[in-house]
Design a protein around this nucleic acid. Structure first.
Lengths: 227, 227
DNA sequence: AAGTGGTCTAGACCACCTT
DNA sequence: AGGTGGTCTAGACCACTTA
């Protein structure tokens, strides 16, 4: 069994398989609830079965598939409820992180955040989503780092990749990005005042609004994919 | 390579290896930061290397070990900060779940919860920790089920096992259990009034108090294990 | 430059489901 | 009983580290 285009660019084979599979699942190539057969995928990707299994376990951790012992893997249904659950979790964790960040934030971070938020707004206005998503992530990461909770960060990271992938498919409205930038400014203000409760509240609301926006866009008639 | 006492009682080999390893790590058999060598454990448990790897990945999901590609596994340091992080995450997620539960709770759950809380208090007063922990879990699970968010539940479950394990080592003070029962009553009240914000706040505070109690007990001179 | 140890392969084994 | 497909084994391969 020789190479198949999957061999370059990643760290380990199972990580690359996981990346590819995640992309394909979110792109809707597999029907929800569809059984993912290891032998089949082993041939499809040109690797043996063990790396496939490890990739599947990774994706199970992300919530994308369901794995039952001796039964195999099924694609988790990516429906409205699933996305709501993901966003709700993200909101709760972001609230926690921002709460923690409030008591540790300094001038440097606040200034950097303000700059990033400006770049975010500009990129979004120009329709440069890739750059906007990147600025947004860096904005949030600035404060996440302060919370010093790698376990929580791992949860956020897992969900972030998934949601980024969907955002890239559906985009977001310019009005929503303007709104988001405003929420970012509120967040900066609360953090500057070291008001953890308020920062957490804003972060939760911010996530909630993002959730509503994505759901609305996915339900639009011309959406890239039926929910 | 023949059997080694690990063969009976579980579902798959890697699940059994994970159970055993988790127990041993929390019991302090491995030094924190210690490198876990796959070949060594393969011999130790009498199974080949792949199931060991899968068990390690499982434990990584639980936050107990750190796994680096091509570098192997290390035991995560079970120190004060680690526990704080775990409890903080749990608090955030429980807050979310209780918030959701508040809008869906009915008479039946409220009554059942009050009963369970009574049993919890009684068991704790008698020093029957195993039973107390069980009642406590069932109390919380009653409301968690209402939130209808299996992804969040999975996070809670992962952490619960870990914390239960530590609680079993260190116990908790009778005064803390009385306090906890009181917090449970506050929670029931908030839920009965369908006040999601308040329920979330109480849940977060409840988790915070539990965290403080465990940390205090672990720091006592006669604690079962040095932190 | 060799050694250590993590990762991957091929195929055997075995659980579960269908006939 | 036979088939399908998930799980495990033994060992080759290869990345990373020591000297």
């Amino acid at each position: 069994m020789r190479d198949s285009g999957l061999n370059l660019g990643g760290d380990t084979i199972y990580a690359r398989v996981a990346d590819k599979l995640r992309e394909e699942i979110l792109a809707g190539i597999f029907a929800t609830g569809e059984r993912l057969k290891i032998a089949e995928m082993s041939e499809r990707y040109g690797v043996s079965m063990m790396p496939i299994r490890e990739a599947l376990q990774l994706l199970q951790g992300e919530g994308l598939i369901v794995l039952e012992p001796n039964k195999g893997a099924r694609v988790r249904q990516i429906d409205r409820r699933f996305l709501e659950n993901m966003y709700d979790i993200r909101g709760a964790i972001e609230g926690l992180l921002m709460h923690k960040a409030a008591s540790r934030v300094g001038e440097g971070e606040l200034r950097a955040a303000a700059t990033l938020n400006g770049e975010y707004e500009a990129a979004a206005r120009l329709g440069n989503w890739k750059r906007a998503l990147d600025c947004n992530k860096r904005f949030h990461s600035l404060f996440f780092a302060l919370a010093d909770n790698p376990e929580a960060l791992a949860i956020i990271d897992r969900h972030w990749g998934l949601i980024d992938c969907l955002r890239r498919q559906f985009g977001f409205g310019v009005d929503r990005t303007a709104e988001a930038a405003g929420e970012h400014r509120q967040l900066i203000k609360a953090l500057a005042e070291h008001d953890g409760e308020q920062a957490a509240r804003i972060a939760r609301r911010h996530t909630l609004a993002a959730k509503e926006d994505l759901l609305a866009r996915m339900q639009e008639p011309g959406a890239a994919r039926k929910q």
